[in-house]
Design a protein around this nucleic acid. Sequence first.
DNA 1: TAAAAAAGAATGAACGTTCATTTTCTATAT
DNA 2: ATATAGAAAATGAACGTTCATTCTTTTTTA
Lengths: 194, 194
Amino acid sequence: MAALQKSIDKRNALINATIELVNNDGFHATPMSKIAKMACVSPATIYLYFENKQDLVNKTYIEVKTSYTAYAFATYNETMSVEEGFEVIWKRIAEFKLKESANAMFLAQCDNTPMIDEESRQEGIKHLQPLLDLWARGKKEGIIKPLSDYMLYAYSINPLSFLMITQIRGSVKMDKEELEQAYQAAWSSIKVCE
Amino acid sequence: MAALQKSIDKRNALINATIELVNNDGFHATPMSKIAKMACVSPATIYLYFENKQDLVNKTYIEVKTSYTAYAFATYNETMSVEEGFEVIWKRIAEFKLKESANAMFLAQCDNTPMIDEESRQEGIKHLQPLLDLWARGKKEGIIKPLSDYMLYAYSINPLSFLMITQIRGSVKMDKEELEQAYQAAWSSIKVCE
DNA sequence: TAAAAAAGAATGAACGTTCATTTTCTATAT
DNA sequence: ATATAGAAAATGAACGTTCATTCTTTTTTA
C-alpha cells in the first residue's frame, strides 16, 4: 500500500524531463535541480522515486528501450517467414525513429556514450529476444549467413548500420576477423545507386 | 615565434588523453585534472594550449574528424565512376572503424551527443566536400535518386545507416516527408538474407 | 638575463544529496 | 458526515565535495 501512493504522473514527468533535458544538454550537463524544475517538483522529491541520478537515467533508459522494442515488434509474430519478419520489424523501427524522434535520439545518446550502467544495458538487451529467435531461425533455415550474434545487437539499434558498425558499448564483443568478414558481406548487399 | 615554442608533443598528448578519457567516461565526467595527469602536464598548462575545456574538445573533434575524412578519401579520386567512388569510400570507412576504433568511437560519441559546439560541427562537415561533389555528380548523371543532401551527411558518418538515420545533431535538417520517402527507398535496397 | 612556459596551490561556483520541517493523505472514531 | 491523528509525501535550505579556471611562483629556453 505504502509505496504505491507515490504518483505515477510525477514519475512520468521526471522521466520525460530527463529525456528532454538530456537530449538538449547531455547527461552530466543536466542538473537534478533542472530536472526537478521541469517536472514541477522539488529536487529532494526525485529521491523518493529514484535512488540517485544514475538510477534515474538507468530507469529512463530501460523505459525508453522497452517502448522501443514493443514498438518494433508490434506487428511481428512468429508464424511469419524469416524474410517477412525482418521486413516488418525494419519498417516499425523506421516508423519509431520518425514518430518518436525524441525517444530515438535519447537512445542514440545512451547507446553511444558511457552514461548507462552495464547492468542496465544488459537489461535493455533482454527485450530483444524475439529478434534473437528470428535470427536463430534464419540461420537454422540457412537463410542467414553464419555471422556473430553481435551483429544482431547492432541490427536492433539500426537495421542497416548493423552491417557497418564496429563498436557497441558494453560487453557485447566481436573480433576483428568477424568484422572484416561482415564488411565484405555488407558491401555486396547494398546499393547506393539505382 | 613566441606561440610556436609550445611543444606539439604536449598538445598531442592532451588530444590523445582527451580521446581516451572521453571514450571511457564521457566528456563531462572527465575532469581537466585527469586529462592533465594522463598527458603528464599541470592542469594550468592545458590553458596555454586551449582556451578552455570546450575548446579542447572542439579542437579534438575537428582533429579526429579531419583524420577520418582524410582516411576515407585516401584511395578515391575524381576520375573514378560514381559507383566506384562510393565503393572505394565505403571500404575505407569500414577500414577506419576497424583499425582506428578509438577514434571512431570518439566520433560516434561526438555525433550523438550535444558535447560539440555547432560551429565545430559545421567545421567538420566542410571536410566532406569530395563526397558532396561525388553525390552531386551521381545525381547529375541520374545514377542517384533525388534525395536530400541531409542523407549524405548521414552517409558520411555511416554509409549504411544513412538510409535509416533520422537524427543528426546540429543544423542539418530533413523534413518528415523526405525521411519517409527515404525509408521506402531503403527497404527495397537491402537484403539481410542471402 | 629576460621572456616564455610550466607548475601547483588557491578560488569560487555549481552540483548531488541529505536534513529538518511542512503539507497532504487516509483511516478511524465520533 | 466530520474531525483528527498518524504516516507518507513533498519541500526548500543547507552541506560537503568536485571541478574549471586563475593566480603567483618557479623553471626552462634562447
